[in-house]
């Protein structure tokens, strides 16, 4: 069984990504979840990611079969999936955000080298737009209209400022919480795991460009690595 390093924003998120990898590659993994804390800032996540990549490389060179998932919510950073967003209405902090998928790839390349085919272990990058909840909702609601909110919750200051409305529309966490409630699952982690178990990866890739990009990474993983 392969070791699967997962750098994500929480244990629940890491579980979701691990399950996605199992569903898409068809293999079992022994997960090694590494949590980052968004409150520590992107720079800290970069440092942690660098260390985790080195550690995974060390494990791989020691003979272990090792795979790696690096995940981070997009949070309104530039991405092909949100190209229609009016960035001028974002806060300055959001406007200054670099493309997260790109910097994550560059960071991996800074440790493993620019030639992705020569990387010492299979890597997948996950940058859900705008956050993991968008994948979860689309996974469990394939036939429902697909919302495209930008923020976490409607009552957040940044959401109210962006929409300039007295009644800000529901945002991703609001929408998923409502869906979770409708399905009668009280535990968030259990809900996410259910979404991953029932995942139709091909269908979700058709509805979410960011998920498709994640799946493309996983599709490139050599089958032999994951079965050792």
């Amino acid at each position: 069984m392969s070791l699967l390093y997962i750098v994500a924003e929480s244990g629940a998120d890491a579980a979701f990504y691990a399950l996605c990898a199992a569903r898409i590659t068809g293999h079992e993994f022994m997960p090694i979840p590494l949590e980052n804390r968004k409150a520590d800032g992107v720079e800290m996540v970069k440092v942690q990611l660098k260390y985790a990549l080195r550690q995974a490389r060390g494990a791989a060179s020691g003979g272990d079969a090792v795979c790696f998932i690096a995940a981070m919510d997009n949070d309104r950073a530039p991405h092909p999936e949100n190209a229609a967003m009016d960035r001028s209405k974002l806060s300055r902090k959001d406007r200054d955000e670099p493309n997260r998928a790109e910097w994550m790839r560059e960071l991996v390349a800074s440790v493993f080298g620019q030639n992705t085919t020569a990387w010492p272990l299979p890597v997948a990058l996950a940058v859900p737009v705008e956050m993991l909840e968008s994948w979860i909702f689309r996974a469990v609601s394939p036939t429902e209209p697909q919302p495209t909110p930008l923020f976490s919750t409607a009552d957040s200051e940044s959401a109210r400022a962006y929409y300039s409305q007295s009644a800000t529309p529901p945002q991703w966490k609001d929408i998923v919480a409502e869906k979770q409630s409708q399905m009668g699952i009280s535990d968030k982690r259990a809900f996410q795991e259910m979404a991953a178990r029932e995942l139709d990866a091909v269908a979700l890739a058709a509805r979410s460009l960011s998920f498709r990009m994640f799946k493309e990474w996983l599709d490139q993983w050599p089958k032999a690595v994951a079965t050792e």
């Binding site: 069984m1 199992a22 022994m30």
Partner: peptide
């Protein structure tokens, strides 16, 4: 330590649910 890089954190109990469909 919190991140899990050096171990000593709660383990993720996933092996049984990581089995592919």
């Amino acid at each position: 330590w919190f991140s899990g890089l050096v171990g000593g954190v709660p383990q993720m109990k996933l092996p049984e649910i990581l089995k592919p469909a």
